[in-house]
């Protein structure tokens, strides 16, 4: 496929860029901190895109799953002194389990009703965390140590960056594998036609809850990494603003696309950084950006790159216009010559 050949170079370019980016001599710790934050948002956005873009289910309170990941990982490490490499997957499992439970109402609720349920969840959870002071420390939050792998403590943002990058790449690969499989197809069939999905043997409840759970696993991992990057978490970190941020990322980047999740997360984190002095403005710009994308670029930023690649591939194989136009079949909307009731 020319598309693959084209994107091969793009992939290699992005990989090299990702590896070298933190080595840029900016001399600013803010820069590498933002790079780390970008990766973490990439992971959360990727998970959300699996749920919204691929499976067509809605979650408007996704930051709550990040909170679950962040808190479970932090509490395991600070209170139970569990090593980081155990706490991270444990956080993923905790968050995934709650995600599974959150998927149960999704088997009954559609569209706006599901949106409302997830908003409520996203609003209630930080509130619960702040009330449950004996465990979570309430508004005072938790101070989280830097991750330790064996004897190695990842103190610098640079070492954290490579850890986060490895995890992101693994999770992208994991998602890509799933999307090519019967799981990816069954989630997409949920989005397109539940009737078809059922008739082809897709268990709707299982498909929906598993999409929710997987998405929450991604968010939980992102939350855990966030806690270790920032070194401090409190309930307000995971409020409705962050949930809407995640949603904006996948819409701007491109729904139902792994590349779109990454692009969107990077673009919006950059935007956030540029407008960090004036938080009010960043919200406005973000809102406008979402509207403009939905209006003029429904495929998101990533669709620009895609059409560029296609355009190049077409230029290369001029003459052989790719697959022949729609097969011989004649388009006829209605041709029921059956005998009509007169």
């Amino acid at each position: 496929m020319p598309k693959w050949l084209g994107s091969y170079w793009v992939t290699a370019g992005v990989a090299i860029l990702a590896l070298l980016l933190p080595l840029l001599p900016t001399g600013s710790s803010y820069f590498s901190y933002m790079l780390n934050l970008t990766i973490i948002y990439c992971i959360a956005a990727l998970g959300l895109n699996l749920l919204i873009g691929i499976a067509g289910q809605i979650s408007l309170g996704h930051a709550a799953f990040m909170a679950i990941g962040a808190y479970s990982s932090s509490l395991l490490i600070t209170k139970l002194h569990v090593p980081f490499l155990v706490a991270l997957p444990a956080a993923a499992i905790c968050s995934g389990a709650i995600g599974f439970l959150m998927g149960l109402p999704a088997t009954r609720l559609h569209g706006p009703y599901l949106a409302l349920a997830t908003i409520s969840f996203g609003t209630a959870l930080p509130e619960m965390l702040s009330r449950w002071e004996s465990v979570t420390g309430g508004h005072a939050g938790i101070i989280v140590p830097k991750p330790q792998i064996g004897p190695l403590i990842l103190r610098s943002d640079l070492s954290l960056y490579y850890l986060n990058l490895v995890i992101l790449v693994f999770l992208m690969w994991f998602a890509a594998n799933l999307l090519r499989s019967r799981y990816g197809r069954s989630w997409q069939s949920l989005r397109e036609s539940e009737t078809a999905a059922q008739s082809m043997g897709v268990n709707l409840s299982l498909a929906k809850t598993s999409a929710f759970a997987l998405s929450a696993v991604y968010a939980g991992i992102a939350g855990s990494l966030y806690a270790h990057l920032v070194g401090f978490i409190s309930p307000v970190d995971f409020n409705a603003f962050m949930s809407s941020q995640l949603l904006a990322m996948i819409v701007v980047g491109g729904l139902a696309s792994i590349g779109g999740s990454i692009t969107g997360a990077a673009a919006l984190t950059l935007l956030l950084a540029l407008l960090s002095r004036s938080r009010g403005w960043s919200l406005i710009v973000e809102g406008v950006l979402v509207i403009v994308t939905v209006w003029f670029l429904p495929g998101g930023l990533v669709s620009i790159g895609r059409s560029l690649l296609q355009w190049r591939a077409r230029g290369r194989s001029r003459g052989g216009h790719g697959p022949a136009g729609p097969a011989s079949a004649v388009r006829k909307e209605v041709s029921r010559h059956g005998i009509a009731r007169s």
Partner: peptide, 14 residues
């Protein structure tokens, strides 16, 4: 009842 945003082959594989 087909998935419009899937390729034919993926629809069939469903």
């Amino acid at each position: 009842e087909l998935c419009k945003r899937l390729k034919s082959i993926d629809n069939v594989m469903l």
